[in-house]
């Protein structure tokens, strides 16, 4: 078993949801954290100026939102399944629904299908109002790469 998976096993045993981003350098670089305030696992992208893609609006970069959506999908798989390696992305489809303002963004992932080799996760991201999502994604991961 690889080192990050040992850490994951330890975090699960102690119930430390919020330390999931420690497993993934890029999630830390982006300032993505995990919250559990509502009893569900939420990914949070804390606003900072380096996330901006369009300075004139201003709006977050499509890649910043993509990063939050993909990271949140990975966290959901790590937490909910008995996966033995980090999931490997196969496809991601992002729909950009509204311009994302320079504020904190949240995301919630749902595992739609957990097959033996592939997991499908649907993720929604929002800002101030959960009823007005800024982006959604469908993501497929290989969970037992051979």
């Amino acid at each position: 078993m690889t080192e990050p998976m040992n850490t994951l096993r330890e975090l699960k045993r102690s119930g430390q949801f919020s330390r999931l981003p420690e497993l993934i350098p890029y999630s830390q670089f982006m300032g993505i954290s995990v919250e559990q305030a509502t009893g569900e696992l939420l990914g949070k992208l804390a606003y900072h100026d380096d996330l901006i893609g369009n300075p004139s609006l201003p709006a977050l970069h499509g890649g910043s939102l993509g990063a939050l959506l993909e990271s949140t999908a990975i966290f959901q798989i790590l937490w909910e399944t008995e996966i033995q390696t980090l999931p490997k992305i196969v496809t991601i489809t992002v729909d950009y629904l509204r311009s994302a303002k320079p504020v904190d963004t949240y995301a919630r992932g749902f595992i739609t299908k957990h097959g033996r080799r592939v997991v499908n996760v649907a993720v929604t991201a929002w800002q101030a109002d959960r009823g007005k999502p800024v982006a959604t994604a469908n993501v497929h991961f290989l969970v037992h790469p051979t």
Partner: peptide, 18 residues
């Protein structure tokens, strides 16, 4: 800093998306 999997050192998909 953009690594998605510390075991394989492969870049995270989010950076590729950007």
């Amino acid at each position: 800093k953009l690594i998605g999997n510390p075991s394989t050192r492969v870049l995270h998909g989010g950076a590729i998306t950007t």
